[in-house]
Design a protein around this nucleic acid. Structure first.
Lengths: 219, 219
DNA sequence: GACATATTCAACTAATCTATTGAATACTTG
DNA sequence: CAAGTATTCAATAGATTAGTTGAATATGTC
């Protein structure tokens, strides 16, 4: 009977055994997306992305919703993202290569200290700090830190004029291993803005019991 | 750079993609063991068990220690067992087949209600309840619930005479999916003992912050 | 109904994985 | 040093997986 258990759990292990599928899961942690969007974001060919999504679907790790021509893939509940984070945590503890990658992110200049996150929220509410969400807007709409402004990295240059120079700017993206916020901070500081990177993405933020909003930018 | 991350995490996924390796990890959660012991307990051939252990070693999920002819495999730290439990938890939430297996265990007669575990400890200390650890003795020595008596299932019949009839007996083994305690309870009740099964194994017990002892039975 | 679009399927090739078998290695014992 | 024991390695065959290519399917538009 317990052979069955290991057989079933191995289904999940197999689903997690491909770099492509892990990247898809990581993206879906930020919010639901279509196959086209996932293909674009990951660089996988269309057919290949679809194939991997079917594998994840067979393992019950994703759900689908069809709207007209478009199929939207989403994570069925938090357990899948929690599992992805457990896998990543294990990697951080057991694999020097993962620790090294994380170290590179953390040693990058202008990373926010692991400050009390609620203090950050408070300063954002007071207007003392501008919080930028530099992910693609569909991810912002799915979930974002309250008070954050959506300025996708690819639009950052065009939006610089709208950013106040006198205030500190904190940028975040998909989490500890995402380069978007690093890039944004680099760009902002090159233009003499005071900027820093927040390591947390939405899943990490949510896991700490911190508040999360959704929908359009309320500005 | 983040492609690297997924590549590295996929190493861990691949290690977890085999039923045989998951069973080995599950056993090692109970304590260190030799190849021979692992082979016997899992039913894998010697060479096959060794091969899978080498894969786990390459993924940095196990460590080895050689003593004379014998190689002892162990989990390097709690993160590996925590990951196994995260995988199992995901299975419980996402796979009907895993939920069904768990249901079969929970619906078995004479399973202890998820009672306050500290109350159980108290009653064991008072001598009101006899707590039996029915795993192989080497697992008991590695770690056990304080106050538990080691009576491996295969020796239970021979040890019946030493068990008091007037007291309640609670048996536990490797965790929610282990049949040893179910079998022990069945046997005990057939001989008119008052017996029940505790679902928790040592990893589950430890994860709840409950105390764990190690070494020989102190009776 | 033809055409366009989004997605999935099927077939193929190459790579990877699993279990077995027999050999090799490392260590112990007499 | 030979023999025994525990473990790992290498080779093999068969099974499974990954990515590509082209076809098929489902839906929308005109």
């Amino acid at each position: 009977m317990t052979k069955d258990l290991y057989q079933q759990l191995a289904r999940l292990g197999k689903a997690a055994a491909s770099p492509a599928r892990l990247q898809l899961l990581d993206l879906l942690c930020q919010g639901p997306r279509t196959v086209e969007s996932l293909s674009n974001e990951t660089g996988l060919s269309f057919a290949n992305a679809s194939q991997h999504l079917r594998v994840l679907y067979a393992a019950r790790l994703v759900e689908t919703e069809k709207t007209g021509l478009f199929v939207t893939y989403r994570l069925p509940d938090d357990s899948v993202c929690s599992f992805f984070q457990a896998l990543r945590s294990l990697g951080e503890q057991r694999l020097a290569e993962v620790e090294s990658i994380l170290r590179q992110f953390r040693d990058a200049p202008h990373s926010l200290e692991p400050v009390e996150k609620r203090a950050l929220l408070s300063r954002v509410r007071k207007g003392d700090v501008i919080l930028l969400d530099v992910r693609p807007e569909e991810e912002y709409r799915a979930a974002h830190i309250p008070g954050a402004v959506s300025v996708p990295l690819k639009h950052l240059n065009a939006r610089l004029a709208t950013l106040p120079r006198g205030k500190e700017i904190v940028a975040y993206c998909r989490g500890p291993y995402c380069v978007l916020a690093l890039e944004a901070v680099r760009l902002l500081r090159a233009k003499q803005f005071r900027a820093a990177r927040l390591e947390d993405g939405i899943p990490e933020w949510r896991a700490q019991g911190l508040p999360v909003a959704a929908g359009q930018d309320s500005r």
